[in-house]
Design a protein around this nucleic acid. Structure first.
Lengths: 143, 143
DNA sequence: GCCTTTTATGAGATTGAGTCTCAAAATCAA
DNA sequence: TTGATTTTGAGACTCAATCTCATAAAAGGC
């Protein structure tokens, strides 16, 4: 069993939820998308091999994966929520190109440190952060 | 004429757009919300005094205000886009309480500086940034 | 294995924020 | 005032996301 599977199974057990076939299929599909994905695309991917998994179940399972700490919802593009695989990844920020929609990921310990300081100033306990910077990427700048 | 009105009027002229009654009404309503607002709430506020301004016109005018640099769309809460008045305000980051939905604003020149450095490293030209930090606010921590 | 209770599922209906359509109305330069 | 052009209101429409509910699958006890 892969380690992300263990995380999910443990999460389910802890919450008295059942490990069902659709949930396994969805978990595998999500982890085939190692970068960002939206649910409609995920739905289409799953449908290729598993015509009997419903849209409702996918939408019901995604919040479980978020709660289990395996994925998170970092941003919204083209009227769709976009998720990303975070298990084993450090938090990072996204540079989103407003021309070509490309997403560049960049980590920064310095940012984290700064945020921690700011939060402390406001007696705020950080749970997670989404740093989204919009602009123009190198490629589009050169066009 | 208030300075934000001048900004909008100039913007319209520059783009060969007309200053219409509905656009004025919407501008005034937006600037009565000095903090964050969503469009449905704005719609209700406008409707109290101006029953003939349509939802479509509000949705059509908001992007103009964004383009004019008067407001921006900093985050999404409860499946709704939330906007804020930025004319005359510095960029800042948002601390959003995941319990009570309260939004604390915090400025940070240091963050801006860091982002500029990171962007340069990736040959990325920043147009704008939204720094959203989720967590628990002071009040909710003490409950 | 086989019940039995509980939880999860699929299919399709529903919601609701946001967009689009188009005939009618308002704007503004001449 | 006129008339080309843009904008508007009302409601239809879109589509991601949620809900409903009868049926099905899971897991623990026998």
């Amino acid at each position: 069993m892969k380690s992300y599977e263990k995380v999910f199974v443990d999460f389910l057990k802890r919450n008295n939820l059942k490990l069902t076939h659709p949930r396994s299929i969805i978990l595998q599909a999500v982890f085939r998308n190692h970068d960002h994905f939206d649910i409609e695309t995920l739905y289409d991917q799953i449908r290729v091999e598993h015509k009997n998994v419903s849209r409702a179940t996918i939408y019901r399972t995604i919040p479980l994966l978020v709660e289990a700490g395996l994925i998170k919802n970092p941003l919204r593009q083209e009227s769709k929520d976009r998720y990303e695989y975070i298990y084993g990844h450090r938090d990072h920020l996204h540079l989103v190109c407003s021309k070509c929609s490309k997403i560049i990921e960049a980590g920064s310990k310095q940012i984290e440190k700064l945020l921690a300081e700011i939060a402390q100033k406001h007696d705020f306990r950080i749970e997670e952060y989404n740093l989204v910077v919009s602009g123009i990427c190198k490629k589009c700048l050169n066009k």
